[in-house]
Amino acid sequence: MKLYNGGSILTGLVIFLGLVTFPLWFNAGSKAYSQPEVKLPAKEKECIESKEFMRKEHMQLLNEWRDWALREGKRTFVNSKGKEYTISLQNTCMKCHDNKAEFCDKCHNDQAVSPYCWDCHIQPEGLKK
């Protein structure tokens, strides 16, 4: 069957199909995907809240910590079990999770999210990797 202006229509169609199937041929080149594995602290076994809570809500918690510490001057956090912690990213969180590259960045880079923690905070000296 005759196509009218077949050349340009087919070119457009091929470009469109290429764009839609972009993930297929882009991923075909890279090796099989596996979930990133974070390096958990060796010494400490328990975080300030449960693992499930931290997985879901750590960004919310850090945001609240920032507001409490810097805007309200409140420096103590009481977790769901009643245990007290000092509100500080660098002194509390990073005491155990002492390697940003091996912990934070693993998932964040994988998901292409860029948290703005490090706009203000400096990674503790000697831990830059």
């Binding site: 297929l24 991923n27 075909a28 099989a32 995907y33 979930q35 879901k56 809500e57 994988d110 998901q111």
Partner: peptide
Amino acid sequence: AKVDVIAIKDMVVSLTQLK
């Protein structure tokens, strides 16, 4: 809901790699 995007990405990317 703050779903587990890591697990979702695992599923989606392996689907595009036909695994």
